[in-house]
Simulated assay, not measured.
Amino acid sequence: MWKKECGQFCREIHYKRKEEGIEITGCFGEDGQIVLPDEIEGLPVISIAPYAFAEAKTDQDDLIWRNKEVPDIKVDRHAQEKAERICAEQVESVWLPKGVTEIGRYAFYRCRNLKTLILSDSLLEIGGGAFTGCRLEAVEIHFFQGEKSCLRSIVDEIRFAVRARLFYEGEEARVLFPEHYEEAVENTPARLLVTHHHGAGGYYRQCFYDRELDYKKYDELLYRTRAEEELETAVELVMNRLCYPYRLEPAAKDRYKTFLQECLKEAAGILAEQENQDGLMFLEREGLWTLEALEAAMERAAQSKKTEVLSLLMDMRYRCFPKKQKTFEL
């Protein structure tokens, strides 16, 4: 799962040597898809410097690693730094080195277009404001040493919906942290400000203990999702847990399935619209389909021109609800 090719790396990486390894201070490349090597000059990359991707400044004391597999662009050195340093709004995705244990403060400050972050469980410390001004949507964490990670620190900084893919030894979990926000409302007679919480995301962000995600506590919050989130969000969250049931207890699975059965027609249409083939196949595998729900999903797929999903649903209809052959009596 964790395999990088040299051709993926940035064309030029600026760094400093520390006692334990390498600290990245900046990158140059052709686009905002940043893939950083696990080692530079035979030393492990262990940290990302403060403000590394937040601004275009370059320290004259930085060392430089150049990717020999990426053609160099012959331009004036000063102009090259000014035009091609990947920072701020240019950053779109980041694949961190496997051995990174620390991200400095404000490392990705105002990287507004940063949507995807890939990292390992070596990273447990994140500097203050590291993702301030970001709208991170997807986090992928690979676990090699247990189940501790910096996931809580990340989702605490992002109030928008965050989708996490967590890779353990031979297993994958997918969890959704819904959007949430807080609103200060004045209670004029009492001269107090009362904080109102909106969305279930704040509760899901509390499902951690000692830097480990508490799946049992996460699964107990379905009632919050049902009460405070749109059906599309609830369906996505539920299908993530059912299709990737890491540490999913039988009682929680039953609650999730009951929820689906109660809104099966609407949920099936949402899955078709989202092209969630894993979810649609789960409904067949668990024997949850009704003819009405299946036909509703087919109609939604046809309206949305999701031809691949429509073909899948037509095959399911044939298997789940075959037409009875007519018989004739002589």
Results as ranks from 00 to 15, higher is better:
residue 132 T to F: 08
residue 124 L to S: 09
residue 124 L to Y: 01
residue 142 H to A: 11
residue 173 A to Y: 04
residue 120 S to M: 05
residue 155 V to T: 12
residue 125 E to H: 12
residue 110 R to D: 14
residue 147 E to T: 10
residue 147 E to K: 14
residue 148 K to R: 15
residue 111 C to I: 02
residue 168 Y to E: 00
residue 116 T to F: 09
residue 156 D to T: 11
residue 131 F to P: 02
residue 137 E to T: 09
residue 167 F to T: 14
residue 107 A to W: 06
residue 123 L to G: 02
residue 138 A to F: 11
residue 152 R to M: 01
residue 147 E to S: 12
residue 121 D to M: 00
residue 126 I to S: 00
residue 103 I to E: 04
residue 160 F to V: 08
residue 95 W to T: 14
residue 106 Y to H: 05
residue 133 G to C: 14
residue 127 G to A: 08
residue 104 G to R: 03
residue 99 G to D: 15
residue 143 F to P: 05
residue 113 N to I: 04
residue 96 L to Y: 07
residue 133 G to D: 12
residue 91 V to E: 05
residue 167 F to I: 15
residue 165 R to F: 04
residue 116 T to D: 13
residue 168 Y to V: 00
residue 127 G to T: 06
residue 152 R to V: 00
residue 140 E to R: 15
residue 120 S to Q: 05
residue 149 S to C: 09
residue 166 L to A: 10
residue 155 V to N: 03
residue 137 E to L: 07
residue 133 G to Y: 12
residue 115 K to S: 12
residue 94 V to T: 06
residue 157 E to Q: 15
residue 169 E to S: 15
residue 168 Y to A: 00
residue 131 F to W: 04
residue 118 I to M: 09
residue 107 A to I: 08
residue 101 T to D: 03
residue 122 S to D: 08
residue 142 H to E: 10
residue 136 L to W: 03
residue 129 G to K: 07
residue 141 I to Q: 03
residue 142 H to M: 11
residue 104 G to I: 03
residue 115 K to V: 05
residue 159 R to C: 07
residue 114 L to F: 04
residue 165 R to C: 10
residue 109 Y to T: 04
residue 129 G to Q: 05
residue 156 D to H: 10
residue 167 F to A: 13
residue 112 R to H: 08
residue 138 A to G: 02
residue 172 E to I: 15
residue 121 D to N: 01
residue 175 V to R: 07
residue 138 A to Y: 15
residue 148 K to E: 13
residue 163 R to F: 15
residue 118 I to H: 10
residue 111 C to M: 04
residue 121 D to H: 00
residue 169 E to H: 15
residue 125 E to C: 03
residue 91 V to W: 06
residue 92 E to I: 07
residue 134 C to R: 07
residue 109 Y to K: 06
residue 123 L to E: 01
residue 119 L to F: 05
residue 125 E to W: 03
residue 160 F to C: 09
residue 167 F to H: 15
residue 126 I to D: 00
residue 96 L to Q: 04
residue 148 K to P: 01
residue 156 D to V: 06
residue 109 Y to L: 13
residue 100 V to M: 06
residue 152 R to K: 09
residue 91 V to L: 12
residue 115 K to L: 07
residue 117 L to Y: 03
residue 172 E to P: 05
residue 173 A to S: 12
residue 118 I to W: 02
residue 149 S to H: 03
residue 97 P to E: 08
residue 97 P to Q: 08
residue 174 R to P: 04
residue 175 V to Y: 06
residue 152 R to W: 04
residue 121 D to A: 00
residue 111 C to K: 01
residue 145 Q to C: 00
residue 139 V to E: 02
residue 97 P to T: 10
residue 138 A to V: 14
residue 158 I to N: 01
residue 109 Y to C: 09
residue 122 S to V: 00
residue 154 I to D: 01
residue 174 R to K: 13
residue 131 F to A: 03
residue 149 S to N: 03
residue 119 L to K: 02
residue 154 I to W: 02
residue 115 K to C: 06
residue 139 V to F: 05
residue 131 F to E: 01
residue 161 A to T: 14
residue 128 G to R: 14
